[in-house]
Design a protein around this nucleic acid. Structure first.
Lengths: 250, 250
DNA sequence: TGTACATCAGTGAACGCGCGTTCACTGATGTAC
DNA sequence: TGTACATCAGTGAACGCGCGTTCACTGATGTAC
């Protein structure tokens, strides 16, 4: 709110541009996002937009960053709103927040998690920070639960009773050996985030991470058949229970 | 190979158009696919393409159908190549075939499983058949294994021993009650494909289905950090073991 | 408090390019007698 | 086997539209003395 009137006006205009860009995005998709259309909507000649935004790609970057932050915010708030000692509830809150944001904002979700925009490469130094908020929240949540002793020692998949062929593959057991380079990578992740959880749980964390987005993708991009599920939310809740089981969460 | 010379020439030209479209796709993405560019590449004036393809959208549909069929073919062949009684091997072969096709054909994978192409709606009557080949293969495989008694009665997640809070959520147990509308949908699926597997396994099947594509998405769309995993294939293999455990597969 | 100058926002024209689609047409290839 | 006609492939011009980006410019808003 500080700054000279000019600075405030400038900030206001940038906000308008990003807002209009967001609207364009949901109407025509990222590939067809155009600065000229934004200018038209803003009621200004097309070249005027270049006072505020260096190029079309820069507007895309602004939109990517904003979307990541909004999703990250939603997820972090949802997790914080769940009971501090209810690890399972926190996990489910995180997943539901991702799903709800995706369904509410399909175009922006597509910008972040759909096909890459042809000819556009997001600049890592600006998008990485906002981009990892969700996975960081997930990892923190798992690690906290582990430290609090709230995780099952033998999570789902570690020792099923089989009808026949009773030897589950070794790497499915959280305590068992993972292949070497993978273990090296997982150790690096543990170090980077100062995690207490064992490697195998980090691996399962990435599985739940990708699977969560797989499930949300299917709904947002309409990849279940058109009338297969009356209420996809119920299926999602079922999936969450299985995911929780995979992590040893209650 | 039958038909008059004219008919054969015509077929040849359509094949060329689709092939060029495929190449365009991988270079500029679906949103920027253009009939004029195809015509240029074909060495023909732009209006000539309309002799063969009614519109840009129709070319997109041809490409979607072709891609679905190629992926379906790859998956079916991979499954068939695995040992007939090795349910776990068949499952892994299916998943690997999806991953390999996706990594080999990122643009076409994006066309099928990425963001929807703005302004284009695939005609269900032409794409549904090819589009369900993968999931049908998966469902068949699970059902066959179930009928052969090759599935664990108590798959992963059904009864973990917990450190504390020792009550896993009811719907995570394959035998337990699923919410009503969901159960209704699952029953409809079982009827449609004449399945022997219980509802809960159908639900887990959809979870593995979406999770498989979630994992492949992450690799194809480069959503793990750029240098997080030395060999993402190893992580994928680990995930496969967990997926197999979820289904009770060896 | 008033004036001179610098800064900035927005204009309008232009460059050079792309697109999907239609339409009247020329010529070559096929078909029927 | 030869001719008359129909079918089809491909041409070229046009319509009407869009885009990103640059550049010299006008006029308003701020700043320094």
């Amino acid at each position: 709110m500080a700054g000279t009137p000019r600075e405030r006006a400038r900030e206001q205009t940038i906000n308008d541009i990003v807002r209009i860009g967001r609207e364009q995005l949901s109407q025509v998709g990222a590939a067809a996002l155009s600065l000229r259309a934004v200018a038209r909507e803003l009621g200004v000649v097309s070249s005027a937009v270049y006072r505020y935004v260096g190029s079309r790609d820069e507007l895309l970057t602004l939109l990517v960053v904003e979307a990541y932050n909004e999703l990250g915010e939603a997820v972090e708030q949802a997790v914080a709103a769940a009971g501090e000692h209810d690890a399972g509830g926190r996990f489910r809150a995180l997943c539901r927040a991702v799903r709800e944001w995706g369904l509410r904002e399909p175009a922006r979700y597509a910008l972040l998690f759909g096909s890459p925009v042809p000819g556009y490469q997001a600049p890592a130094e600006r998008t990485t920070g906002p981009g990892i908020r969700v996975v960081v929240a997930l990892v923190r949540l798992i690690d906290d639960a582990y430290r609090a002793g709230a995780l099952a020692a033998n999570p789902a998949g570690s020792g099923p009773q089989l009808v026949q062929e009773p030897t589950p593959p070794a790497s499915a057991q959280p305590g068992a050996a993972l292949s070497d380079p993978l273990q090296h990578d997982l150790a690096a992740i543990r170090r980077e985030f100062a995690l207490a959880v064992p490697d195998a749980l980090v691996a399962r964390g990435t599985l739940v991470w990708t699977s969560l987005f797989g499930a949300v993708n299917f709904e947002v991009f309409d990849q279940y058949g058109r009338e297969t599920f009356t209420d996809p939310g119920l299926l999602f809740e079922h999936h969450l229970d299985v995911f929780a089981g995979i992590l040893g969460l209650p």
